[in-house]
Design a protein around this nucleic acid. Structure first.
Length: 839
RNA sequence: GCGGGUGUGGCGGAAUGGUAGACGCCGGGGACUUAAAAUCCCCUGAGCUUUGCUCGUGCGGGUUCGAGUCCCGCCACCCGCACCA
């Protein structure tokens, strides 16, 4: 009890080593305790930990440490989502091997994470680029292949002709490759797909059970899966063929005035011999794909010589090729009902096609003229023969029934969700374990030959897929015939890596991907924490993979993540010079109310608070902050003020405040006084009560992930404790605070715990117990209102009778002045809360 | 266009229909100090005729003894999806 300041530069590392040596956070699957699996989305090893990681992992860490204190056996692992393009880009730019680059980054980032004191079980660490990991992934891929959930087909891709590689949609910017700047081409390539659409219904229904997921994420997934029900039926065309179309509004079929097909629909393609058709199809493909382009895009059509026969009226409808019809949704062809679909309305207006009313608000409005827009709303069917007078829903059912009995159509469900294309023409990913045999086509690599390892001697000097170019790697033999054959040179989408890593964390035997018994012990993940940017892809793929594993009998878990939490971003003010360039926070200083550049005093505009990013230069490096204030101050900042789902604005003042609070607690923790006897019994009891209340409230707040509220309560108890004179209650409050802050400020707490002769590590200690009797107040403050307005407050014993409270209220001088002799008509008394006098 | 969210002091934000602004940051004043740092104390929504009163949770209505909270109608901003038939 000598030094008056807490020194994180000495204490942080000391306690981190103590936890490591004791194996404090190593999860024991044989433990009899209830199990908690706490997981944060594992990072891509880009090079440095950023504030977003710190916030994400601090939240998970508080939960993990808290659960441990509550007597749970906690699994809180960490690893690396290590395959991906940045490693290949680094290889091309810096001439380093992607593996070397990745492992160096992992080393650096691991050191950073350890320096923040996270309660992680490092014995389970792995990187997805380890052959031990991706070999098991190949084995799971083959299981899915055997189960018929993997198939191969030709598919259109974005092809960068300079880099000679396939680009994801996000990598195509204004039609150009994001790296090369080359005009992107559409190419047809043979690609592998996973049958995620087989699970569309399950994935949709499953959302209903995910009560502890944010509504927002569930809705986003629901929209992404995009279930739609309607009628698929065929028009007989004038050339004798049949044209299937899909509609969700079969009730409006009598309003159809044209038929339209997509530019790449077979009917359109059959007419390309006509140069005008060919020119129109080219025109359609040119159209921009940006949101703005689509917003203003004019509906364009080309009227073909073909006509389609209306199934009920027998009328011949013109068949158009139209730019607004998508080939990859439904059948790539639609019936146009201009009266009740806005796109069809615009199209019909432009090409002067009939716009008929077949739905009206009321039967009497059957002949009402159409307005300036389509009427997509509900109503009663009119001008539609046998459907007249029905409501929309009944009419839909009726038309579907007639189509089915007539044999020309059927009710169907159409999904927006597509099968998952997993082929990537890249080096730094999991090799797809398939051999292309000249005699037997694609043949799975026998499992005893796994893993199919990536070759290390790789040439990144020429563009294209290095696996394709490698002199020997792809040459092998057919597992069936033994004849020369070629390996698949595509690798798996990196989202495959992250679709099952949580299973491998729970169980990592050498011979198989995971042990079902261990999976049963730990899964599902109890709390999964990460960014909202993964709301659809990663979270949908992981759900699919888990269900696919369940379907092929690997285990009984259907949903991988029982509760999901999406945390907000860490943001920072931006600083802009007059010329539009940005300055970083350490290049500016405050000059009175204004900001100026430190270098030359140039005026700086402090701009919007936005996500930390290199381009805006508003990034703050965690390492520098930890070096200055210690890990606990940064962790405390990450939990303070902003609710965790909202954005957290970083500020220098804020971190300084957190640094001060660490020291303030340290001073308080050194004031344990075993000789203290207390002073005023009531004052002592009040402080003890506050401590007991905090034990309950902070626990509730942490369980609700309301860390900002837990923080506020700890501040309150700290303030009250500081003010109190030495007493047993005060010692109790100090010890309580030590425990309550320990999940958040573990280093400070360990240091204080050891100085206070605490047994073992505070990380192994229990959450403090509270005395329920001590939670109850014996005095309450009662608000006195006159006509709903506050006039006075009085102190009364808890549980005082209504009549007593009413009498006390009326006795108040302030109340009497406000009443000013008016007749009291009614008095409302809410026990222990308030009295409202109505005149 | 469709879907979702948010709106409370200078700022981040609290508040089972019951004392709006807890807690933190910024700011102001003071104590200690030769001085600074550190620390401690007080003040800090707006206005007014200041023992106190009035107004105040994006705007306009409503329900209620009582509304930040519930209902109806608007506005603004943010996010997601987007020619999905």
């Amino acid at each position: 009890m000598t030094d008056t300041r807490f020194d994180p530069s000495s204490a942080d590392g000391r306690w981190q080593r103590a936890w490591e040596e004791a194996g404090t956070f190593t999860a024991d699957s044989h433990s009899e305790k209830p199990k908690s699996y706490i997981l944060e989305m594992f990072p891509y090893p880009s090079g440095r930990i950023h504030m977003g990681h710190v916030r994400n992992y601090t939240m998970g860490d508080v939960l993990a440490r808290y659960k441990k204190m509550q007597g749970h056996e906690v699994l809180h692992p960490m690893g690396w989502d290590a395959f991906g393009m940045p490693a290949e880009n680094a290889a091309m730019e810096k001439k380093v091997h992607p593996g070397e680059w990745t492992h160096a980054n992992i080393e650096g980032m691991k050191k950073q994470l350890k320096g923040i004191g996270f309660a992680l079980d490092w014995t389970r660490e792995f990187a997805t680029c380890d052959p031990e990991y991706y070999g098991h992934e190949q084995s799971l891929f083959l299981d899915l292949y055997e189960a018929g959930l993997v198939y191969r087909r030709s598919s259109e891709v974005n092809w960068d002709p300079v880099d000679m590689t396939v680009l994801a949609n996000e990598q195509v910017i204004d039609g150009k490759g994001w790296r090369s700047g080359a005009e992107v081409e559409k190419r047809k390539l043979d690609q592998w797909f996973l049958k995620i659409t087989d699970f569309a219904d399950d994935l949709l229904d499953g959302l209903g059970e995910l009560k502890d997921w944010p509504d927002k994420v569930r809705l986003m997934q629901e929209n992404w899966i995009g279930k739609s029900q309607g009628l698929e039926f065929s028009f007989e065309l004038s050339d004798g063929t049949k044209l299937p179309v899909y509609t969700t509004r079969p009730d409006t079929i009598f309003g159809a005035s044209f038929v339209a097909v997509a530019a790449d629909h077979p009917v359109a393609q059959s007419l390309v011999a006509d140069p005008k058709v060919a020119a129109f199809i080219d025109e359609c493909k040119k159209g921009g794909t940006t949101a703005a382009a689509l917003e203003t895009a004019e509906k364009l059509g080309y009227k073909t010589p073909i006509t389609a026969k209306h199934p009920f009226t027998g009328t011949d409808l013109p068949v158009f090729i139209a730019n607004f019809v998508l080939m990859d949704y439904g059948t790539g062809a639609v019936m146009g009902v201009p009266g009740h679909d806005q796109r069809d309305f615009e199209f019909a207006t432009k090409y002067e096609l009939p716009i008929a009313r077949v739905v009206a608000k009321d039967v009497s409005l059957a002949q009402a003229p159409m307005g300036e827009e389509a009427e997509a709303g509900d109503g009663v069917i009119v001008n539609s023969d046998f459907l007249d007078g029905m409501n929309v829903e009944d009419a839909k059912a009726d038309v579907i029934a007639k189509a089915e009995t007539g044999g020309w159509g059927e009710g169907t469900t159409v999904w927006r969700l597509r099968d998952w294309g997993i082929s990537r023409q890249r080096y730094w990913g999991t090799p797809i374990p398939i051999i292309h045999s000249p005699d037997h086509g694609p043949v799975p690599v026998p499992k005893d030959q796994l893993p199919v390892k990536l070759p290390d001697d790789i040439d990144f000097d020429t563009p294209g897929n290095p696996l394709e170019r490698h002199p020997t790697w792809k040459h092998t033999t057919c597992p069936i015939s033994g004849k020369p054959a070629l390996r698949e040179t595509d690798t798996l989408d990196t989202f495959v890596n992250s679709s099952w890593y949580f299973l491998r964390f729970a169980s990592q035997p050498d011979d198989v991907p995971f042990d079902p018994a261990e999976i049963a012990k730990w899964m599902p993940v109890q709390h999964y924490i990460g960014g909202i940017e993964h709301a659809i892809l990663h979270l949908l793929y992981a759900r699919f993979w888990t269900r696919a594993m369940e379907r092929i009998g690997k285990f009984d878990v259907k949903e991988p993540f029982a509760a999901l939490f999406t945390q907000g971003m860490v943001t920072h003010e931006t600083y802009e010079l007059g010329d539009g360039s940005w300055l970083s926070p350490d290049e500016v200083r405050k000059d009175g109310a204004d900001w100026v550049a430190i270098e030359d005093g140039a005026p700086v505009t402090a701009g919007r608070v936005v996500k930390m990013s290199k381009s805006k230069k508003n990034v703050v490096d965690p390492d520098a902050i930890i070096a200055e204030y210690g890990a606990d101050a940064v962790r405390w900042f990450m939990l303070s003020d902003s609710p965790p789902e909202r954005d957290l604005p970083w500020s220098q003042d804020g971190i300084e405040g957190c640094g001060r609070f660490v020291q303030r607690l340290w001073r308080l923790f050194q004031q344990l006084d075993t000789s203290a006897t207390g002073e005023d019994p009531k004052v002592d009891r009040d402080l003890a009560r506050k401590a007991h209340q905090a034990i309950v409230a902070v626990a509730e707040d942490i369980e609700a992930l309301s860390f900002n509220k837990a923080v506020a309560r700890i501040y309150e108890l700290t303030g009250a404790t500081e003010k109190a004179k030495p007493s047993e209650s005060r010692n109790f409050a100090i010890r309580t605070l030590m425990s309550l802050v320990s999940p958040m400020m573990p280093h400070l707490s360990e240091e204080a715990w050891s100085q206070a002769d605490g047994e073992g590590l505070i990380a192994d200690a229990d959450w403090p117990t509270h005395d329920p009797a001590m939670l109850v107040e014996d005095e309450v403050t009662i608000a006195i209102q006159h006509k709903g307005k506050l006039r006075d407050t009085i102190t009364a014993p808890k549980g005082a009778a209504k009549e007593d409270l009413e009498a006390l209220a009326l006795a108040s001088e302030k109340v009497q002045r406000s009443l000013d002799g008016a007749e009291v008509r009614k008095v409302i008394v809410v026990p222990d809360r308030l009295v409202n006098i109505v005149t």
